[in-house]
Design a protein around this nucleic acid. Structure first.
Ligand SMILES: [Mn+2]
Ligand SMILES: [Mn+2]
Ligand SMILES: [Zn+2]
Ligand SMILES: [Zn+2]
Lengths: 155, 155
DNA sequence: TACTAGATGCAAATGAGTAGCATTATTGAT
DNA sequence: ATCAATAATGCTACTCATTTGCATCTAGTA
């Protein structure tokens, strides 16, 4: 049998199985649709919205419903495996909960989203508790501007 | 005639006229509905959403339509008189463009929004251009946590 | 005062996300 | 392996903030 196909299948299967393991410890039931959705987010390079997840998932499981995608995204968010990002105002995007703090830069010209790895949460948390006696548990920074390649074109 | 009523009327009229002046220099046509909406946002202490603006405006101009509120908010945003804040995911809120940078703290318990006056934009802008060659033109920080009074209750 | 582009009001449309409910699948116990 | 309990799924219908089309109106200008 073709070793190329075997390798592809195995890579996919491995990833999927790893995802099932991850899900298993959350208390959530491990369903095929959840494993698939989680896997798609894990493998997806970009930030995906519900509809994009849906489109990609249907390629594998045509009977999967959009409701399930929405419910799964909520569930994964709740158990802390996935994070919701508010890059634009019209819809929510999702990414695997990252190990280190990062924030998002959105290019106003081309829409590209760039990640900015920098720890601001600590600083902010401290400043806020000093000034306002307000205890911060989460913060999100969204920055807009122009990416390197669009800056060139504008000049 | 009652001087109290006169003073009230005059205060309102003065505010409204000042708003008309402000609008006049923007290139936008100065309509009663725009002046009223702008005035409501200016006088409103809190952050107002479209529907709240609509409710308050109808008290003065019952024929005003919700569409006009939405269109006006967009117009005021575009000319830089008003700023859109993304405090929650379900709707947009509006405030007069503040002269100094501030960000918003949202209490997860009671929903109260507290403003945090602190200049982070400069720092962020610099760090980002260094690290990513990305030119930042706007940034918004949304922080969630617990306000002083809700922190008490939780203990 | 008359002209005209821009603004308004109303009604209908859009679109992301949610909810109800009958059916199905996972899990943990026998 | 079988079963019961109950969580999850797939539909469909719904909600609700925001947008759009279009006929009518009005602010700004000559
Ligand atoms: Mn990211
Ligand atoms: Mn504010
Ligand atoms: Zn760009
Ligand atoms: Zn509170």
């Amino acid at each position: 049998m073709s070793s190329i196909i075997d390798k592809k299948m195995n890579a996919k299967t491995r990833s999927f199985e790893k995802t099932r393991q991850t899900l298993n410890v959350t208390g959530l039931r491990v369903t095929n649709q959840r494993a698939l959705i989680m896997d798609i987010i894990r493998q997806g390079d970009e930030h995906l919205d519900a509809d994009e997840v849906y489109r990609r998932a249907r390629a594998k499981q045509p009977r999967l419903s959009l409701s399930t995608v929405y419910r799964t995204l909520q569930a994964l968010k709740k158990v802390g495996l996935v994070e919701e990002v508010h890059i634009d105002e019209t819809r929510h995007y999702y990414e695997i909960k990252p190990p280190t703090e990062h924030h998002h830069l959105v290019c106003l010209e081309c829409g590209r989203v760039v990640e900015f790895q920098y720890p601001l949460a600590r600083l902010i948390k401290r400043k806020v508790i000093e000034a306002k006696d307000f205890e911060i548990t989460g913060s999100e920074i969204r920055m807009t501007g122009y990416c390197p390649s669009c800056r060139q074109k504008r000049k």
